[in-house]
């Protein structure tokens, strides 16, 4: 039996694949790890548009929107996602990115407003810990 505090702590995460990127093994492993850490994970499936993902994330009211990109399109897709979140008054959503992203781009993405970048080879526990920390820092919503 759970008490109020426990159930309130369930973190909702959307994991999304956007654009022409068919690599979903990594994101599925992450989904599983987050689930095993007690989170609710909404997976979008492949080949979504930024609009679809942002609308779905708003309806699902996730704490964290995690986007995995291995296509190299991150400098196009993240700005688009951030812009859409802003336009839809959903800037309080935490945005995380994962995949293959060069160091210079990582810096720029942080400046742009992406809350966390977790590159390939990040151990699952580190992803779990950083997600928990991001939600704790944001506070109750």
């Amino acid at each position: 039996m759970q008490n109020n505090d426990n159930s309130a702590a369930v973190i909702r995460v959307m994991l999304a694949k956007i654009g022409l990127d068919g690599h979903d093994r990594g994101i599925k492993v992450v989904a599983r790890a987050l689930r095993d850490a007690g989170m609710d994970v909404v997976y979008t499936g492949l080949h979504r548009t930024p609009e679809e993902v942002v609308d779905a994330a708003i309806q699902e009211d996730v704490d964290i929107l995690g986007i995995s990109l291995l296509s190299g399109a991150h400098m196009h897709i993240f700005p688009k996602v951030l812009e859409l979140l802003k336009a839809k008054e959903a800037e309080d959503m935490i945005v995380a990115g994962g995949g293959v992203i060069p160091d210079d781009d990582v810096k720029e993405l942080y400046q742009m407003g992406v809350d966390k970048i977790l590159l390939q080879d990040t151990p699952p526990q580190e992803i779990i810990d950083s997600f928990r920390q991001l939600v704790a820092e944001r506070g109750a919503r």
């Binding site: 689930r35 994970v41 979008t44 679809e52």
Partner: peptide, 20 residues
């Protein structure tokens, strides 16, 4: 999951074209 209490919610995969 009865073990962790977490869940993978997969309905979105099939309902993808309904959003927006």
């Amino acid at each position: 999951s009865p073990f962790s209490g977490g869940a993978i919610l997969g309905d979105r995969i099939r309902m993808g074209d309904l959003v927006s």
